[in-house]
Design a protein around this nucleic acid. Structure first.
Lengths: 129, 129
DNA sequence: GTCATTGTCTCATAGTGTGATACTTTGGGG
DNA sequence: CCCCAAAGTATCACACTATGAGACAATGAC
């Protein structure tokens, strides 16, 4: 379901966070779904249990999951999106998109290739079929 | 031309690097164009000159600019794209795109909004007009 | 040769990411 | 009722990184 690279420059916690957020966004982890215990996921990924625990805490702080001692962690049912984050998120995403496209162009990719990549990513997050 | 946020969680050097890479990719900094001296850019951005110097070094290592003591830094004329980086770059971009879209969806954005944002970013990097 | 200008090097320091280990809460089975 | 297994949490340590301060070295104009 999820993998991490220890040799990546992206921190382990960030990789895990990204993976779980994607899974929640796409519906692969629907509301109410239970996440694996920190220890198990930690062993599966080959990282320290604290690393996973910190990710779970971030997810809880942002309201995506609900977690409690002794009872596990599961995806929140009804999420409220805080409107305050909107503008900030918009700017961040704009920068991210620009960086992605700059990377692509400087790596020698054609625009059409990037569009295909984008389409596939959209299918992952907003599955139509 | 370029700004940084000291309160951002993104490191200063990364912000600067991102900005310059975008400028080169879009053609705003065409081949042969001279970059500002490290000291001047450092003052303009309000960061240490080392931070800028490190960014220039990264750019030089990746072949985007040519820099020499006492003579300044300018954008490389004829770039060769190392083919070895292609696959790695592709995977990184796919992950980046997925993360961006997951962020967008979890922030409550509609797909159409994200598409508009994407279109605008494309216009920045691949200006058609 | 001298000097201003350019990038480079060295060192110090605060902060961050990760890990090892111990603790606390919860709920179920003797 | 008691205790234990299982779940998340807290504390401490340590390496590494990002940034900054200041000294150094190469270049070219005069």
């Amino acid at each position: 379901m999820l993998t991490v690279r220890l040799d990546s420059e992206e921190p382990l916690a960030d990789q895990i966070l990204r993976g779980i957020r994607s899974a929640i966004a796409s519906g692969e982890l629907p509301p109410g779904a239970e996440l694996p215990p920190v220890r198990q996921l930690a062993v599966d990924l080959g990282v320290n249990l604290n690393t996973v625990a910190r990710v779970y805490r971030v997810l809880q702080t942002s309201g995506l999951v609900h977690t409690a001692r002794g009872r596990g962690t599961r995806v929140t049912n009804n999420r409220e999106v805080p409107a305050t984050d909107r503008n900030e998120a918009l700017e961040r995403m704009t920068q991210q998109a620009e960086a992605l496209l700059a990377d692509a162009k400087l790596a020698g990719m054609r625009r059409a290739q990037v569009e295909r990549l984008w389409e596939r990513a959209c299918q992952t997050i907003w599955p139509t079929a």
